[in-house]
Design a protein around this nucleic acid. Sequence first.
RNA 1: GGCGCUAUGGUGCAACGGUUAGCACGCGGCCCUUUCAAGGCCGAAAUACGGGUUCGAUUCCCGUUAGCGCUACCA
Length: 491
Amino acid sequence: MSPEKPRVRFAPSPTGYLHVGGARTALFNWLFARREGGVLLLRIEDTDVERNRPELVDGILAGLQWLGIEWDEGPFFQSQRLPLYKAAAERLLGNGAAFACYCKAAAYTGGDATEEQEGEGDDEGPKATKSVACPCRDLSESDRAARERDGIPRAIRFRVPRTGVTRFDDAVFGPRELQNEEIEDFVLLRSNGIPTYQLSVVVDDIDMRITHIIRGADHLSNTPKQALLYQALGSAPPIFAHVPLILGPDRKRLSKRHGATSVGSYAEEGFLPEAFRNFLALLGWSPGDDTEFIRTSEMIERYSLAAISRTNAVFDRAKLEWFNTQYLQKTPVEYLLPYVEEELKRAGLWEGSQASQDPAWFARVVDLIRPRTRLLGDFTSWARGFFADDFGYDAEAREKFWKDERLPAMLEKLADALAALPEWNHDACDAASRGVAAAEGIKAGLLINATRVAIVGRAVAPPLFDTMVALGQKRVVQRLRRAAPLVLSPG
RNA sequence: GGCGCUAUGGUGCAACGGUUAGCACGCGGCCCUUUCAAGGCCGAAAUACGGGUUCGAUUCCCGUUAGCGCUACCA
């Protein structure tokens, strides 16, 4: 008689990509499962034939994997479990908890979805105050038989009690209750035989022995319906835990309008999964103190539903980037290498490169560059010169550091001096460069800054002499000679 | 419209009846400095409003306001 292990689930619909809100819900479920030694299962809620896009499932799974969220069971597909829901609906029909509805779908819902907002002045006419009762609720047996005989499509609706209140407990929001008269006789099984969310979610959560439902707070208002269903189906409800929503900067629910919302796009943009996960975990949850950086193991250790906040959180891109910057700098280089390698491959800079042939050099260079990176893409954008010879010269950098007319000659002289160096190291490069500047009577800074642009094409780069060492003598000399005649030329 | 939820600096979180209301991002300044970052230091910046309860409210209760959610044969 061991107490049952907690069982939780993440249940996305394949109507879009894995978005940040879903990702956070998945993360919270995962943290909870790991914390409690429970099981996380994945369920694809694809009962909406219209919007369902099966090809998106792989992307959702990939997004979870990228985040390091692994599930223990599934994925299960609701579209493959239709008979189960249908049977449940019939059962409820049989014991009177539900009734057959022959209304035309559109007619009952009060027309189409046009919801004009225009008209100034006072607000429109009255809408129903309480839930509308479906006329089919109390159809006589003979009327029902008649409609059945006429072949009128039949949906199955739940018979919501007219009086009383429905209660449930929420681990985040506390005890909730709602007057039953506020709840409409919601549809369980559509006339096409496909279940609605309310039915399938409850049937599955019962069947899969889910103990804790951790999901977005947008489901809070519908939970009473589900509580009613648990009751009608003869099952004890699980523990609910609704997590606040993630909003855009305008405090509207996060959506495509706000730019990138799929986790895949953040991966492509060059965010590290650890950074993203750290950021996400702290949106709506906190370990209780001022902890900002939190290792996953510690997250799991300190996770609790009670610590989830009740207020919607605004997704702050700047803070996400800050997290990424921090991880890019503080994480061991070895961890970064595969990501940078991937980045170089995508940019076509990997094959046959020094980076691919000399792992030690690759690690050193990545370590040299990373203090200035914010996204993985920085390794191939401004740091391109470290991995390829075909880089351009940044316009702003030229404008700022290539305007002195003595520079072309200076760079040539520096190339000569560097080429003659018997030893190639930081101090030698330093001495040679300053020597040239002194000999020519210009400030070292002038030459140093111009040289940086000449050998990597950017003003943003690691300290010059470290850069020279990394690039190697031959390359530096070549690049100086190549750049010298370009210094004063336009564009 | 109805019902519900929420309310600490611009943002994310702390403080769960008694603190000079704390931390972080962002922002401004200074330092460091061959660029740009990073880093260090300093600074501006909040308890939505109004009533209660209490010796004492950010914290508990009520109202207002605002935001969000639900109100589909979407999930």
